[in-house]
Design a binder for these strands. Structure first.
Length: 887
DNA sequence: CAATTCACG
DNA sequence: ACGTACGTGAATTGC
């Protein structure tokens, strides 16, 4: 058998780490009997991670037997002077052992020996018997056990952080082999174990000596050849100490343990005892996990769900009527559902669950009809994904009107997981596993060969969708989010599905031409920069660039990052006057960005149909906005001319057609005017003033718009933006490059002129404190637990978020409504025009030539009338034969 | 896999 | 006296 995997844990050391990991919670982790439980709890958490990562067949947790060991007999002072283990930890040790027994894991201690020796002995047994071994400890002494088949994981400052010592890693860290490490320790001694080595020899010297002479014995064999030095003297004087230290440091790999390797095989978990133990300790989470794994069964076994496997013969028997509401789940491996391979599907109809790996069965007339009949309602998880994927099979789904993923996102978007299992767990349903558990991740991602394992997973998914529906709908109702769910998010998902499937045409030829032009420019800039730097280096490496600018050329350091010098734009901008190389670097950076992210990036994702098919993530952002991936169509350049060129590649489907763009004007400020009820700002929008000029007049106390200079307008614009973000004098001053005092004056003037905005900001923060969340005009929520934080920075961030989220989120609500209405209009008028992109406040359409006039009229109309606010909504249009010119 | 940088609203 | 603008995704380097 290939997987003989052995896990050896240093029980005392790991318990010690566990205790301190949750030390701050010491008093909140108590059993009903008053026993501290923090170390037991943290130990179990660490153990779970280890068992999952290592997946061992054999496990042993070794403990120290007592103070007296063969080492204390050799050297009385061994481990002397150590601080006593805290009583709060000591009292937990027997319970950790009890828990391990219930979990089917052997523990062991041996009189006169330390846990290290037990581990060393079993590591040796493991090697002899062809095991792959993992040792876990907080003590670096054990790293001497590292070998090609034995890895020693040492806990770092945290708990979850482990440093893996392989022989290679040992070489990197100490410059010696694991065996030589013993000799190194012999020279250095060990302060924490309280034995000395050779005077004045630390890690550096020890490593050097061992690398030269191979061992302590080697050194003393050649001691006469050494030149006269203080070191030589010390070596000679401390020879006895060195040899004693070597004995103390050497782990006994042949201690008289009474267990054999077969005795430490993992045993089945004793669920009944474990449950009682968790109850005694008051471990509610572990109890829940126990229920999840299907209480009383072996956790490696899948909980049994009844299902019928469909095949060519019985597929015809599947029936549903209009009275039925069914569950449907279509599985793919991977996130990108435009391309991901199908895994299988499950259907739940009238308490019967049908499953299969063969998704083509869905194309059978009877099933296809069920999926396409609007009157047969379907509950799904991720409506958009389901719709797009079914479309790949030629199935035009209708009647998908409940989406568990969207519901859970609206109820609480703090957790942005889109894994059905994880979400089910949040609502107490542990009957379904996570995809990670079933399919794995990274290189080991795969579809289970075992039919039962896969089908159980698929069946449990439709079960969970059904069983949690009632709970989720009730929560939506409690939150007054039924309308948000039914009339905004569900219809938006359908609209987005169509946009994604349709895609947008991108001309590779245009991009390739740009690629060539940029390549020439980049080469020129590179040569100039290397010339001035006097050497070649990797321009894309901030580290190497920092070295050139700040060390070689001696430019002043303006800002530092965690890892070194900052070379960001804001820094380089300030250095432009100091050296011409800086401007060239900025130019290079800008073009390199466009070349790699947009030219090359887009070329990579153009599909055989000549289009890009993005995915809009509808359940990700904290505010309710969409995001866009693979490719991201929401950050196509517009601010620089070189970048803007990219837009020339985005073209209509038909050669003489148009790209039509329509964007909301100042939608966030209009939302702010509405929600704050500020009369002055509302008046400005109602009158149709340029809002930034109006603000300039107000804060600079001017009489007429004619007195507003471009600089004043720029400053006023920054203040308007700043307000939306939850302004601070510091932020504004940094943005505008003015003094903090001046920035504060702007803000004071602003609030004087728009007093109700100030009130709104205070109210938004107070409301978040009272309710624990912020809310949009359509009742979209964002929870803000940090609003009560003790730390100023954390709390202040939550306060700004409380101000910003209702504004950004309401704007997101509005454009979603506009999109739904827009798609409806396009359908009603039987137009061929497609909505193709949404960029937060902007919609892009692919318009056939003869529909342009209609589109010019209806798009702004629909967008402006999406909702009724106390101020008008304005949308501006542009059109051309590509996206670049459509402005 | 984290950190840095920079593209967008 | 603190140390901050709000929301995203992708490419790249280097541990």
């Amino acid at each position: 058998m290939a997987d003989k995997k052995l896990l050896l844990i240093d029980g005392n050391s790991v318990a010690f780490r566990a205790f301190y990991a949750l030390y701050r919670q010491l008093e909140s982790f108590k059993s009903p009997d008053g026993l501290h439980t923090n170390a037991i709890y943290a130990f179990k958490n660490m153990l779970d991670v280890l068992l999952k990562d290592v997946d061992p067949t054999h496990v042993l947790v070794a403990f120290d037997a007592g103070k007296v060991t063969f080492r204390t007999k050799m050297y009385v002072e061994y481990k002397g002077g150590r601080a006593k283990t805290p009583e709060e930890l000591l009292e937990q040790m027997p319970y950790i052992q009890e828990m391990l027994h219930d979990l089917g894991i052997k523990t062991y201690e041996l009189k006169n020996y330390e846990a290290d020796d037990i581990i060393g002995t079993f590591a040796a047994k493991g090697e002899k018997n062809g095991f792959t071994t993992t040792v876990v400890t907080g003590d670096r002494d054990l790293t001497q056990l590292a070998s090609p088949s034995t890895t020693v994981e040492v806990t770092k400052s945290g708990v979850s952080q482990l440093e893996a010592y392989t022989p290679e890693h040992m070489k990197e860290v100490n410059g010696v082999t694991p065996t030589e490490f013993i000799d190194m320790k012999a020279l250095m001694g060990d302060n924490s174990d309280n034995y000395p080595g050779v005077t004045k020899v630390g890690p550096k010297t020890a490593s050097r000596l061992i690398q030269k002479y191979g061992s302590v014995e080697g050194i003393y064999d050649h001691i006469d050849e050494m030149k006269k030095s203080k070191l030589k003297e010390n070596l000679i004087n401390d020879k006895d100490k060195a040899f004693l230290a070597k004995k103390l440091a050497t782990i006994d790999r042949d201690s008289p343990v009474t267990l054999d390797i077969d005795d430490i095989k993992r045993q089945p978990v004793d669920y009944e005892k474990l449950r009682q133990f968790y109850e005694k300790m008051n471990f509610r989470k572990f109890l829940a996990d126990l229920n999840a794994s299907g209480a009383g069964q072996d956790s490696t076994e899948v909980e049994k769900v009844e299902y019928i496997v469909l095949n060519d013969d019985n597929v015809k028997d599947v029936k549903a009527t209009e009275a039925d509401t069914i569950e449907f789940y279509l599985e793919m491996l991977g996130a990108n559902y435009h391309l991901a391979p199908f895994v299988g599907f499950s259907l739940k109809i009238n308490d019967k669950i049908y499953v299969s790996r063969d998704v083509e069965l869905l194309e059978e007339d009877n099933i296809k009809h069920i999926l396409e009949d609007e009157k047969i309602k379907k509950n799904v998880f991720d409506l958009k994904r389901t719709m797009v994927a079914a479309h790949r099979l030629g199935i035009h789904t209708h009647g998908l009107d409940y989406d568990m993923l969207l519901a859970s996102y609206l109820i609480n978007n703090e957790n942005n997981s889109n894994d059905l299992g994880e979400i089910a767990h949040l609502y107490g349903d542990y009957s379904v596993k996570t995809d990670l558990e079933v399919y794995g991740k990274g290189k080991s991602e795969h579809i289970p060969d075992d039919d039962d394992e896969l089908f159980n997973h698929l069946a449990s998914k439709v079960n969970s969708i059904e069983s949690l529906k009632k709970t989720l709908l009730e929560k939506l109702k409690d939150h007054e989010q039924d309308a948000l769910f039914d009339t905004i998010e569900i219809p938006t998902a359908r609209v987005l599905a169509r946009m994604e499937m349709n895609g947008m045409k991108v001309e590779a030829s245009t991009l390739i031409q740009l690629q060539n032009e940029f390549a020439v420019k980049l080469k020129e800039l590179e040569d100039k920069i290397y010339g001035q730097a006097g050497e070649k280096f990797n321009l894309n490496s901030p580290k190497q660039l920092g070295h050139i600018l700040f060390e070689k050329l001696g430019l002043p350091v303006i800002k530092k990052t965690k890892t070194g010098y900052s070379t960001a734009v804001e820094v380089l901008d300030q250095l432009k006057t100091q050296s011409p190389i800086v401007s060239e670097i900025l130019d290079y950076r800008q073009i390199a960005k466009i070349q790699s992210t947009y030219v090359k990036g887009l070329l990579d994702v153009i599909q055989p149909d000549g289009r890009v098919h993005t995915r809009y993530l509808q359940t990700l952002t904290a505010t309710g906005r969409l995001s866009s991936v693979d490719p991201n169509l929401q950050n196509i350049p517009t601010r620089t001319e070189e970048g803007k060129q990219i837009r020339k590649a985005f073209v209509p489907s038909e050669p003489d057609g148009y790209i039509f763009s329509c964007d909301y004007s100042q939608v966030e400020l209009r939302v702010l005017a509405h929600v704050s009820g500020d009369q002055n700002m509302q008046e400005a929008f109602k009158t149709g003033y340029d809002i930034h000029s109006h603000t300039a007049m107000k804060i600079f106390h001017l009489e007429s718009p004619d007195e507003v200079t471009p600089l004043m307008r720029r400053h006023a614009k920054a203040v308007n933006f700043g307000i939306v973000y939850g302004i601070s004098d510091y932020g504004l001053s940094k943005n505008l490059g003015i003094s903090r005092k001046r920035a504060q004056e702007f803000i004071d003037n602003y609030f004087e002129q728009y007093p109700q905005i100030k009130d709104y900001m205070n109210k938004a923060v107070q409301e978040a404190r009272d309710k624990g969340y912020a809310e949009t005009i359509m009742h979209r929520r964002r929870y803000l637990p940090d609003i009560h934080a003790k730390k100023y920075t954390v709390r202040a961030f939550a306060e700004r978020t409380a101000i910003n989220s209702p504004i950004q989120g309401s704007a997101a609500d509005i454009i979603k409504i506009a999109m739904i209405n827009m798609q409806k209009k396009l359908d009603e008028l039987h137009l061929k025009t497609k909505m193709v992109v949404q960029v937060h406040d902007e919609l892009i359409f692919d318009v056939p030539k003869d529909e342009l006039e209609t589109i010019k009229k209806i798009v702004p109309e629909v967008m402006q009338s999406a909702v009724k606010l106390d101020v008008p909504l304005i949308a501006d249009s542009g059109w051309a034969h590509n996206w670049y010119d459509a402005k």
